[in-house]
Design a protein around this nucleic acid. Structure first.
Lengths: 133, 133
DNA sequence: TTATAAAAAGACTAGAAGGTCTTTTAGTAT
DNA sequence: ATACTAAAAGACCTTCTAGTCTTTTTATAA
């Protein structure tokens, strides 16, 4: 469904948020261990997320990752769009690139419904809402 | 959603079936052109499908690809399982590999519903049903 | 003010997916 | 029989995803 990068980002961010709630700022080693993801790869992905402004970090002793509480909640959709673009939400199931609403391909009608459900799900859930579950 | 291989296979097989209905046995060049897919890659994918028994072919003049009319219709699901395994139909949206019904992950409940819809769609549609549309 | 801790940066590697091309094999029509 | 046609086989290449590792920068605590 999603790429590894999106998966690790999703799991990592939810873990960070659950720790933030407890007053902690986890670091890459802890995060990677807890979400069962490769250590260095997780670090790289988190760095990208910081650069994109989704997340904040502090270097040095006592440092780690945390969310800016002034910012609105981060929807899964925003995260997916940033890590792997909109192909899941705009692409056609049949794989015909010239499949448009007026010239739909043979799987279009049925696939549209599924795509809308995916869109609804990733639009309504946020990192913060998942962290509370 | 699907891999390129699955996409080209899907489009190629539907094209072959529509041509079979008209009494034709299209070859790799024609198929690749019509479904807008890379020529040699399409040929390779069709060869694999023949080896897997989904399709038949004839070499030499007047040769090409065709379906065995004695066989039952080929569901999209069978095709997907053969080309990319069952990860789309069994995998977890959240990407947690130890996500089971009794220990569900945080996106499980909602994702399950979408996965079931996908399963229903690919189980009900066949190459033959798509070719008729 | 220095030792230490942790993120940032970026080079590098492995493997898989996607794609190309040439040669071989096997039919078919003449 | 032979020439031609088309699939089969398989080597090869390219690109992208996933993952590793080392070095550099920056902050903090003692």
């Amino acid at each position: 469904m999603f790429s590894k990068e999106t998966e690790y980002a999703l799991r990592g961010l939810v873990y960070i948020q659950t720790q933030n709630i407890l007053g902690n700022r986890p670091g890459t080693d802890e995060i990677a261990r807890e979400i069962e993801a490769p250590r260095f790869y997780t670090a790289k992905i988190l760095q990208r997320l910081v650069r994109m402004g989704f997340l904040m970090s502090l270097k040095g002793k006592g440092g780690g990752f945390f969310f800016d509480k002034k910012k609105p909640e981060l929807t899964i959709k925003e995260l997916i769009l940033a890590t792997e673009g909109d192909k899941i939400l705009t692409g056609c199931g049949f794989g015909l690139n010239n499949c448009t609403p007026d010239r739909p391909c043979k799987l279009h009608e049925q696939y549209i419904l599924i795509r809308e459900d995916i869109d609804k799900l990733v639009s309504s859930e946020t990192i913060q809402s998942l962290a509370k579950k």
